[in-house]
Design a protein around this nucleic acid. Sequence first.
DNA 1: GCTCAAAAGTGGTCTGACCACTTTTCATTA
DNA 2: TAATGAAAAGTGGTCAGACCACTTTTGAGC
Lengths: 215, 215
Amino acid sequence: MDKKQENKKVFLEIVNQLRKLIKQEGIKPGEKIPSERVLSERLNVGRSSVREALRSLELLGLIETRHGGGTFLSAVHSNQLVEILASFILQENKAVEDVHIVRRMHEKEAIRVICSEQSLRSLPVWESLFMKLELENEIVRDLLLRELMIASGNRLALKIWLQLVAYSATPLKKLSTEEEKPLLQMLIKALQLGYEKEATSAYENWMHYLKNSSS
Amino acid sequence: MDKKQENKKVFLEIVNQLRKLIKQEGIKPGEKIPSERVLSERLNVGRSSVREALRSLELLGLIETRHGGGTFLSAVHSNQLVEILASFILQENKAVEDVHIVRRMHEKEAIRVICSEQSLRSLPVWESLFMKLELENEIVRDLLLRELMIASGNRLALKIWLQLVAYSATPLKKLSTEEEKPLLQMLIKALQLGYEKEATSAYENWMHYLKNSSS
DNA sequence: GCTCAAAAGTGGTCTGACCACTTTTCATTA
DNA sequence: TAATGAAAAGTGGTCAGACCACTTTTGAGC
């Protein structure tokens, strides 16, 4: 009666059956799993259903398929992935503060990377932002952070950061004040000169200012 | 000729086509996407292929399907995160290096956080690890990193980190050597004393050693 | 024993069919 | 006219069969 609950998604049931079967047979990572036709017969389902389940597992990186060769348990990844993804989705309670922290961590690290590399420090975008800040009193704020993340050159970090931004409550939408401007200019200048310590310090001051001014 | 590279996984191509189509049509989360038969026709592929792609997306939580009703973009905003991670995991050959970099960034930040907080520095786990390292020559390596991430107290960072670990190539599976031990002890000691600079420095030396010793 | 072409095995894709369920349509009825 | 509800259309769920492309195994001929 209590197990009728999860009877909905059939192709998920096949995934479970598959996992069970793999455990029973003692199939180790890197080894071959039964062919689609065999699975279809053993599980009493159509081959297309088996394939739907297999493709899902493949997208998760749990199995590898070789055209004409067979299907193999992936050697690298463990199936912890699924649990992590799931728990990620189900959570979102007190995460707001954590998101901010991780976001700032990424931003600070980007600053460090840029400072440590001549070619990144001398990108024209910094001078451009500096100018824009001085002439028009535009909202350079978000733009600068974005450029920082892009310039640091790590695409994974950038993607994670973009997600964090999407999650952030971003209560910092006001126009730049006269007080904020010098903080930003200091950050950019330190960045261009490669003064890591000063840059990160300026960044922290900036963040501290934003935090206090929004309250 | 250069675009033949990614011609391998066709059902992944369908996933991309789908994403493109969703963007073109401006389909928002919660809204309905074209039926399987329509997609099959518009993308010039069989319905079963469309289904394989859809089931993958469903397993990732990106879409929801209602029997007889249709297929809908998932309304939960957190699913974008899943998409990013998933799409990243799949293609992107040179992603391995990025994963390592981001992973180390998280670890270094954890060290900084711990150093800056008395209560975290004095956790008994550090002394315990230090002892374990001296007596048994156990593989404290992964354990230490794990404890670092846990102790730093950011659950989001921890989950991201776990994710990264799962996808790290982790070629560092050898037993701890006599050379590695002092590096680790130095890190732990600096950590306990709150010497941030020394701790991060020890961490970087350690990572440098691991990198070189595995080749 | 070796070589290599044929056969068998396997994943990749498409088509058509049927079922179960939901949504829409629209003629009947109150 | 408005409400009802059964029929029709639309849609996902599943299966079976047929090819194709590719890999692995087999075994006949050398």
